[in-house]
Amino acid sequence: MQDSSTIEAQAPVTQKRSRSLINKLMNMSDRSMAWLFIGPTVVILLLINIFPLLWTIYLSFTNYRANQPTRDIEWVGLRNYERLLNSEDIWGYLQVTAHFVCWTMILQTIIGFGLALLLNRNFKGSSFFSTVILIPMMLSPAVVGVFWTYLFQPQTGIMTYIINFFGNFGPVDFIGNVDLAPWGIVLVDTWMWSPYVMLICLAGLKSIPPSLYEAAEVDRASTFRKFWSITLPMVLPFLLLAVLFRFIENFKMFDLVNELTSGGPGSITELASINLKREAFEKWRTGYSSAFAIILFVTVFGAGNIFVKVLNRVKNR
């Protein structure tokens, strides 16, 4: 505050001397400087985030079809929403999504946190292992989808081979079998993204000063108590953050599963976003799918907000 007032007070004097660009910039008030910095970002944000969002909201109340741009756009009110929320299929897709999101979150939390605890022990070669473990999350989801279809291939894939080590099961089809397909996509997503949870947890673990454990040791805390009263509460904000990111990402999951199963067999693995793409770009029901997109957006936004609230409570505890 004080800075800006003194700069403004000096401004008239300097303006007389020179009007070069540099001088103008130097005489800028803090407020205009701030606008200069955030201005470009704000413009881009408005153009590619806010405007499309508002446009989608508008379209969700119409019967617009993107493949017939010349047709008159008819205002249909809440009819798209009504049809969506009364459709049993939609609830089915949301159930498939919930199954996928819940199980990937649970498994990735356990595996990611577990790996982080192991790698935090700084054994010989731990940095090598952490690099290797991080490879899956650095790959493109489309590539991962393609090569896992090969690994899952019932006759020649390695998964059948591995499973038949434990008994004679015959060919196992992870993505073609109605019972296994929902677990197949969970498995691949967990393989790919557990390292991400691990990475964030590891950062959390590294941020705990070793002296706390020494203090606890002198205070006669057992290994379990050290974990329960120091490690866990101090890593929890990091863990929740990782889980929040995974929740949002997996709620919107499209690429990996589309490549693996395209929603099949039947619609057993048809996640909400896969169905949305079908409605929008195969059936061209743009108004209807806009309404669906808005519903998904509100859901993920609401759930995300609850998460952030919990996260802040944990942090400020």
Partner: peptide, 11 residues
């Protein structure tokens, strides 16, 4: 043990 850097449990 009283540590130089306090080592209080921050949470």
């Amino acid at each position: 043990f009283v540590f130089q850097q306090y080592s209080l449990y921050p949470h």
